[in-house]
Amino acid sequence: MDRSPDFDALPLHVDRERGAALITEFYFPVSPRSLERWPIATRRLNGRAIMSTRVLLGEAKRRFEEAPAIMSKLATDNLTEKEAACG
């Protein structure tokens, strides 16, 4: 990661729309609808699901770090036999 979130500059709680925008900015593209399935506790206020920014971005960071790094087939086809054997 080149940048990490500055929690002092972010709101304490966000709705799914703002949360998805923050995750997209700091980690990876995600939609607000995808966040409905994440194991994040929410509070319903004014018809909106509100969640902790710190918890939400912590879950996003965990998912990013646990995702395997995979080379594309095109990249692996261009490796020499020696490079491929080294892993």
Rank of each mutant, 00 (worst) to 15 (best):
R18V: 11
L45F: 10
I40S: 04
E36V: 10
F64R: 11
R48P: 01
E36M: 13
N46G: 15
R33D: 04
I40E: 03
R37Q: 15
S52I: 05
L45H: 08
G58M: 09
S52V: 10
R48L: 12
Y27M: 00
M51H: 09
R33N: 09
Y27C: 02
R63C: 07
L56S: 01
Y27S: 03
V55N: 09
Y27T: 02
L45C: 08
R62H: 09
E36D: 15
L35D: 09
P29G: 03
E66C: 04
V55T: 13
G19W: 06
R33Q: 08
R33T: 13
K61G: 01
A41N: 11
R43Y: 05
R44M: 05
M51T: 07
R37N: 14
G19D: 10
R33I: 01
M51W: 06
P29L: 01
S31T: 15
A60S: 06
I23N: 04
I50Y: 03
E65S: 12
L22C: 04
P39S: 11
A49F: 12
Y27I: 01
E66R: 14
V30M: 08
T24K: 06
N46R: 10
G47H: 04
T24A: 13
R16P: 06
K61S: 09
A60V: 06
V55G: 01
L22N: 02
P32M: 03
R16Y: 12
R48S: 04
E25D: 14
A21T: 10
R16H: 15
T53N: 06
P32T: 01
E66T: 14
R18H: 14
L45W: 08
F26E: 03
V14L: 03
R63Y: 02
K61V: 00
E59F: 07
E59G: 01
V30P: 04
E65W: 06
D15R: 01
M51R: 07
L57Q: 08
R37E: 13
L56C: 01
W38E: 15
R33A: 12
I50E: 07
R48V: 04
R62A: 13
L56I: 02
R48Y: 02
G47A: 06
R33Y: 05
E65H: 09
E36P: 00
R44P: 00
S34Q: 15
S31I: 00
R63L: 14
A20C: 09
G58K: 07
R44H: 00
P29H: 09
L22W: 04
G47E: 12
E66Q: 15
D15K: 00
P32V: 00
P32I: 00
R37H: 14
A20W: 10
R16E: 14
G58D: 08
R62V: 07
E65F: 11
R37S: 14
W38T: 11
L56M: 12
